[in-house]
Protein backbone atom coordinates (compact mmCIF):
# COMPACT_ATOMS: atom_id res chain seq x y z
CA UNK A 1 0.00 0.00 0.00
CA UNK A 2 1.43 3.32 -0.99
CA UNK A 3 -0.04 6.37 0.67
CA UNK A 4 -0.89 9.11 -1.77
CA UNK A 5 1.28 12.18 -2.01
CA UNK A 6 1.61 14.88 -4.56
CA UNK A 7 4.71 14.10 -6.60
CA UNK A 8 4.85 17.65 -7.89
CA UNK A 9 4.85 19.19 -4.43
CA UNK A 10 8.14 20.98 -3.82
CA UNK A 11 9.92 19.97 -0.62
CA UNK A 12 13.09 21.99 -0.91
CA UNK A 13 13.99 25.05 -2.97
CA UNK A 14 17.60 26.06 -2.60
CA UNK A 15 18.52 29.44 -4.06
CA UNK A 16 22.03 30.84 -4.47
CA UNK A 17 23.26 29.09 -1.36
CA UNK A 18 26.82 29.77 -0.33
CA UNK A 19 29.02 28.74 2.55
CA UNK A 20 32.50 29.66 3.62
CA UNK A 21 34.48 29.26 6.80
CA UNK A 22 36.32 32.00 8.63
CA UNK A 23 39.34 30.54 10.36
CA UNK A 24 40.14 33.19 12.91
CA UNK A 25 43.44 31.67 14.04
CA UNK A 26 44.75 31.84 10.48
CA UNK A 27 43.00 35.09 9.69
CA UNK A 28 41.73 33.29 6.60
CA UNK A 29 38.51 32.71 4.72
CA UNK A 30 37.84 29.41 3.01
CA UNK A 31 35.02 29.11 0.51
CA UNK A 32 33.20 25.75 0.56
CA UNK A 33 30.62 26.28 -2.16
CA UNK A 34 29.00 29.19 -3.83
CA UNK A 35 25.75 29.97 -5.66
CA UNK A 36 24.11 26.55 -5.39
CA UNK A 37 20.50 26.35 -6.55
CA UNK A 38 18.22 23.36 -6.99
CA UNK A 39 14.69 22.13 -6.39
CA UNK A 40 13.56 18.90 -4.87
CA UNK A 41 10.06 17.48 -5.01
CA UNK A 42 8.36 14.87 -2.86
CA UNK A 43 9.79 11.40 -3.48
CA UNK A 44 12.73 12.77 -5.44
CA UNK A 45 16.34 11.69 -4.89
CA UNK A 46 19.18 14.11 -5.61
CA UNK A 47 22.76 12.85 -5.74
CA UNK A 48 25.56 15.26 -4.84
CA UNK A 49 28.71 14.53 -6.84
CA UNK A 50 32.14 16.09 -6.92
CA UNK A 51 35.72 15.37 -6.06
CA UNK A 52 36.97 15.31 -2.47
CA UNK A 53 36.70 18.73 -0.90
CA UNK A 54 34.13 19.96 -3.40
CA UNK A 55 31.75 20.67 -0.52
CA UNK A 56 29.29 17.75 -0.74
CA UNK A 57 29.12 17.02 2.98
CA UNK A 58 29.31 20.71 3.76
CA UNK A 59 26.23 21.32 1.65
CA UNK A 60 24.36 18.53 3.42
CA UNK A 61 25.29 19.98 6.80
CA UNK A 62 24.26 23.44 5.71
CA UNK A 63 20.86 22.09 4.65
CA UNK A 64 20.48 20.52 8.12
CA UNK A 65 21.79 23.75 9.70
CA UNK A 66 24.67 22.01 11.45
CA UNK A 67 26.60 24.57 9.42
CA UNK A 68 25.35 28.11 9.25
CA UNK A 69 24.86 29.08 5.59
CA UNK A 70 26.68 32.22 4.50
CA UNK A 71 24.07 33.44 2.06
CA UNK A 72 21.13 32.33 -0.03
CA UNK A 73 17.92 30.56 0.86
CA UNK A 74 16.85 27.04 1.78
CA UNK A 75 13.08 27.05 1.48
CA UNK A 76 11.70 23.97 3.17
CA UNK A 77 8.04 23.16 2.59
CA UNK A 78 7.23 21.71 6.01
CA UNK A 79 3.88 20.59 7.35
CA UNK A 80 3.77 23.88 9.28
CA UNK A 81 4.39 25.99 6.18
CA UNK A 82 7.36 27.21 4.15
CA UNK A 83 10.43 28.28 6.11
CA UNK A 84 13.92 29.42 5.12
CA UNK A 85 16.23 27.03 6.98
CA UNK A 86 19.15 29.35 6.34
CA UNK A 87 17.62 31.88 8.72
CA UNK A 88 15.02 29.96 10.74
CA UNK A 89 15.11 30.33 14.51
CA UNK A 90 17.05 27.58 16.28
CA UNK A 91 13.92 26.31 18.06
CA UNK A 92 12.08 25.97 14.75
CA UNK A 93 14.98 23.98 13.30
CA UNK A 94 14.97 21.76 16.43
CA UNK A 95 11.27 21.15 15.99
CA UNK A 96 11.62 20.22 12.31
CA UNK A 97 14.55 17.91 13.04
CA UNK A 98 12.38 15.94 15.45
CA UNK A 99 9.61 15.25 12.98
CA UNK A 100 10.33 16.26 9.40
CA UNK A 101 13.99 16.24 8.48
CA UNK A 102 16.53 13.54 9.15
CA UNK A 103 20.28 13.29 8.75
CA UNK A 104 21.91 9.90 8.20
CA UNK A 105 25.62 9.35 8.61
CA UNK A 106 27.58 6.15 8.95
CA UNK A 107 28.40 6.81 12.58
CA UNK A 108 26.40 5.94 15.65
CA UNK A 109 26.43 8.24 18.64
CA UNK A 110 26.01 5.59 21.32
CA UNK A 111 25.22 6.61 24.86
CA UNK A 112 26.29 4.74 27.95
CA UNK A 113 23.63 2.42 29.36
CA UNK A 114 21.15 2.90 26.53
CA UNK A 115 20.22 -0.35 24.79
CA UNK A 116 20.24 -0.76 21.01
CA UNK A 117 16.46 -1.08 20.86
CA UNK A 118 15.91 1.99 23.07
CA UNK A 119 18.30 4.01 20.93
CA UNK A 120 16.50 2.99 17.73
CA UNK A 121 13.08 3.66 19.29
CA UNK A 122 14.08 7.12 20.50
CA UNK A 123 13.16 9.14 17.37
CA UNK A 124 9.70 7.58 17.42
CA UNK A 125 9.27 8.30 21.12
CA UNK A 126 10.35 11.90 20.67
CA UNK A 127 7.78 12.29 17.91
CA UNK A 128 5.06 11.07 20.26
CA UNK A 129 4.78 7.30 19.63
CA UNK A 130 4.00 5.24 22.77
CA UNK A 131 6.93 3.39 24.34
CA UNK A 132 5.82 -0.19 23.61
CA UNK A 133 4.83 0.53 20.04
CA UNK A 134 8.12 2.34 19.44
CA UNK A 135 10.12 -0.58 20.86
CA UNK A 136 8.26 -3.06 18.71
CA UNK A 137 9.02 -1.08 15.56
CA UNK A 138 12.64 -0.67 16.71
CA UNK A 139 13.03 -4.46 16.96
CA UNK A 140 11.56 -4.85 13.48
CA UNK A 141 14.17 -2.49 12.00
CA UNK A 142 17.07 -3.98 13.96
CA UNK A 143 16.04 -7.31 12.49
CA UNK A 144 15.69 -5.84 8.99
CA UNK A 145 19.21 -4.42 9.12
CA UNK A 146 20.60 -7.74 10.35
CA UNK A 147 21.41 -6.94 13.97
CA UNK A 148 21.37 -10.23 15.90
CA UNK A 149 18.44 -10.64 18.29
CA UNK A 150 20.76 -11.27 21.25
CA UNK A 151 22.16 -7.75 20.84
CA UNK A 152 18.87 -5.84 20.87
CA UNK A 153 18.83 -5.29 24.62
CA UNK A 154 22.61 -4.79 24.85
CA UNK A 155 24.50 -1.49 24.88
CA UNK A 156 25.89 -0.59 21.43
CA UNK A 157 28.91 1.17 22.96
CA UNK A 158 30.56 -2.26 22.96
CA UNK A 159 29.43 -3.37 19.47
CA UNK A 160 31.74 -3.74 16.50
CA UNK A 161 31.83 -0.89 14.00
CA UNK A 162 29.65 -2.77 11.53
CA UNK A 163 26.96 -3.59 14.11
CA UNK A 164 26.95 -0.01 15.38
CA UNK A 165 26.42 1.21 11.85
CA UNK A 166 23.37 -1.03 11.44
CA UNK A 167 21.91 0.25 14.71
CA UNK A 168 22.57 3.75 13.47
CA UNK A 169 20.71 3.16 10.19
CA UNK A 170 17.76 1.55 11.96
CA UNK A 171 17.58 4.59 14.21
CA UNK A 172 18.01 7.14 11.45
CA UNK A 173 15.43 5.61 9.14
CA UNK A 174 12.76 4.43 11.56
CA UNK A 175 10.70 7.59 11.34
CA UNK A 176 9.44 8.48 7.84
CA UNK A 177 10.35 12.09 7.22
CA UNK A 178 9.64 14.66 4.58
CA UNK A 179 13.33 15.31 3.91
CA UNK A 180 16.23 12.94 4.40
CA UNK A 181 19.88 13.94 4.10
CA UNK A 182 22.28 11.04 3.54
CA UNK A 183 26.01 11.39 4.18
CA UNK A 184 27.66 8.24 2.81
CA UNK A 185 25.49 5.80 4.76
CA UNK A 186 26.62 2.80 2.65
CA UNK A 187 30.33 3.16 3.38
CA UNK A 188 31.72 -0.11 4.81
CA UNK A 189 28.31 -1.80 5.06
CA UNK A 190 28.12 -5.51 4.35
CA UNK A 191 26.07 -6.63 1.34
CA UNK A 192 22.93 -7.68 3.19
CA UNK A 193 22.77 -4.52 5.30
CA UNK A 194 23.30 -2.49 2.14
CA UNK A 195 20.41 -4.28 0.48
CA UNK A 196 18.23 -3.57 3.54
CA UNK A 197 19.21 0.07 3.37
CA UNK A 198 18.34 0.37 -0.33
CA UNK A 199 14.98 -1.34 0.35
CA UNK A 200 14.16 1.06 3.15
CA UNK A 201 15.20 4.10 1.12
CA UNK A 202 13.06 2.98 -1.86
CA UNK A 203 10.13 2.46 0.46
CA UNK A 204 10.49 5.89 2.05
CA UNK A 205 10.93 7.43 -1.39
CA UNK A 206 7.80 5.79 -2.71
CA UNK A 207 5.96 7.22 0.29
CA UNK A 208 7.10 10.72 -0.58
CA UNK A 209 10.34 11.33 1.32
CA UNK A 210 12.63 13.65 -0.63
CA UNK A 211 16.34 12.80 -0.35
CA UNK A 212 19.68 14.47 -0.90
CA UNK A 213 22.64 12.15 -0.66
CA UNK A 214 26.40 11.85 -0.90
CA UNK A 215 27.66 8.37 -1.79
CA UNK A 216 31.19 7.18 -2.30
CA UNK A 217 29.91 4.52 -4.64
CA UNK A 218 26.79 5.99 -6.25
CA UNK A 219 26.35 2.62 -7.97
CA UNK A 220 24.97 1.40 -4.63
CA UNK A 221 21.92 3.58 -5.04
CA UNK A 222 21.78 3.88 -8.84
CA UNK A 223 18.15 2.82 -9.06
CA UNK A 224 17.06 5.59 -6.65
CA UNK A 225 18.72 8.57 -8.32
CA UNK A 226 16.48 11.09 -10.09
CA UNK A 227 18.92 13.96 -10.53
CA UNK A 228 22.51 14.92 -9.81
CA UNK A 229 24.54 18.00 -9.05
CA UNK A 230 28.29 18.09 -9.49
CA UNK A 231 29.83 20.44 -6.96
CA UNK A 232 33.31 20.37 -8.46
CA UNK A 233 33.99 24.01 -9.37
CA UNK A 234 33.12 24.77 -13.02
CA UNK A 235 31.11 21.60 -13.45
CA UNK A 236 28.19 23.05 -11.56
CA UNK A 237 25.23 21.91 -13.60
CA UNK A 238 22.08 20.11 -12.79
CA UNK A 239 21.49 17.02 -14.89
CA UNK A 240 18.02 15.62 -14.93
CA UNK A 241 17.76 11.89 -15.21
CA UNK A 242 14.95 9.70 -16.31
CA UNK A 243 12.83 8.97 -13.31
CA UNK A 244 13.55 5.26 -12.98
CA UNK A 245 11.56 4.53 -9.86
CA UNK A 246 7.80 4.53 -10.23
Amino acid sequence: MTPQFNRDAPVLEVRSLSKGFTMHHLGAQMAAFDDISFQLRAGEFLLLKGRNGAGKSTLLRALYRSYLPGGGEILFHSSHGVIDLARAADVDVSLLRKTEMGFVTQFLTARPRVSAEALVAEPLRLSGVAQEDALEQARHWLDAFGVKRTLWAAYPTTFSGGEQQKVNLARALILPQRLLLLDEPTASLDASARAALIDRLSELKSRGTAMVGVFHHPGDVAQLIDSEIDLTPDVKSLEERENVVV
Binding site: L68, I83, R87, A89
Partner: peptide
Amino acid sequence: MTLTLDAPRFVE
Protein backbone atom coordinates in the same frame (compact mmCIF):
# COMPACT_ATOMS: atom_id res chain seq x y z
CA MET B 1 29.63 38.41 9.58
CA THR B 2 26.84 36.19 10.84
CA LEU B 3 23.39 36.52 9.43
CA THR B 4 20.66 37.28 11.92
CA LEU B 5 18.10 34.57 12.40
CA ASP B 6 14.36 35.02 12.18
CA ALA B 7 12.06 34.97 15.19
CA PRO B 8 10.46 31.57 15.87
CA ARG B 9 7.49 30.92 13.61
CA PHE B 10 6.49 27.29 14.12
CA VAL B 11 7.13 26.80 17.82
CA GLU B 12 3.90 28.01 19.33
